[in-house]
């Protein structure tokens, strides 16, 4: 396998970033060192293949991106905005009424119990960075980093913290979708009860008291004691 320094050279060469001196040295080595020549040609060939494949994928991806609204509809924007404001005001009024206020009372940020920060040490990878940001309350950043990590491998525990970061950042809809997709009976998943608890709070916020109560009942009878007192008092307040 090629040395890292050669790979850097190959990269600069395919991107046309070699300086004059570097280009000269490159040509000389390319002519005399057959191994170097072979490695470069393989690198270049794969770089081109993957670039073209990427371009084709991007074209397909752009087809799924929603179209921006056409100019002629802009006339309706002020009216639409006014209607939205009125609807928004109505819903804000509803959210401030009981029982939605309950979830504010019972909500607290779930602590990072997976990778507590060690003083002075720099985070080594994207996952450590995510937990570090979660600890410091930078929930949007943490959510982005959890998402990046999860692109490459599925992990329910990490997904739970991804949902927690989103929830704390105010992105309830996305948090709900993730929490609903997490396993209920997987012995390897450490946060099944916690998932139920936060889902119940979200349901309360969304005025779905029936579903919230059903989750809380289930937690009370089958759970491992997580938030036992809170579950009891929340259930009595919901009745």
């Amino acid at each position: 396998m090629e040395a890292e320094s050669d790979i850097i050279l190959f990269r600069k060469k395919v991107l046309g970033q070699l300086s004059n001196d570097e280009a000269q040295a490159f040509e000389q080595r390319f002519e005399t060192d057959m191994e170097f020549q072979k490695s470069y040609l393989e690198y270049k060939e794969l770089f081109e293949v993957i670039s073209v494949s990427e371009k084709q994928e991007l074209k397909n991806h752009l087809k799924t991106v929603s179209e921006p609204s056409a100019k002629k509809y802009q006339y309706w924007l002020p009216i639409a905005a006014t209607i939205l404001l009125l609807v928004g005001a109505f819903w804000m009024y509803r959210f401030n009424a009981q029982p939605q206020g309950l979830c504010e009372t019972y909500f607290d940020t779930y602590p990072n119990v997976i990778a507590p920060a060690t003083r002075g040490s720099e985070p080594q990878n994207v996952l450590e960075k995510a937990y570090r940001n979660y600890d410091s309350g930078a929930f949007e950043k943490a959510a982005l980093e959890f998402e990046k990590y999860l692109q490459y491998q599925a992990n329910s525990d990490v997904s739970f913290y991804h949902a927690m970061a989103l929830l704390n950042a105010g992105r309830l809809g996305e948090a709900k979708t993730i929490l609903e997709s997490l396993p209920k009976d997987d012995p390897d998943f450490a946060f099944a009860d916690e998932t139920q608890w936060y889902l119940a709070l979200i349901y309360i916020k969304l005025e779905n008291t029936t579903q919230a109560k059903s989750l809380l009942f289930q937690l009370e009878t089958e759970g491992n004691g997580f938030k036992a007192d809170e579950i009891k008092s929340l259930l009595s307040e919901l009745d």
Partner: peptide, 14 residues
């Protein structure tokens, strides 16, 4: 708890 201030958000993050 800044999430309490926000309206339910189902949109993609921009």
């Amino acid at each position: 708890m800044n999430w309490l201030l926000t309206f339910v958000d189902f949109s993609l993050p921009m």
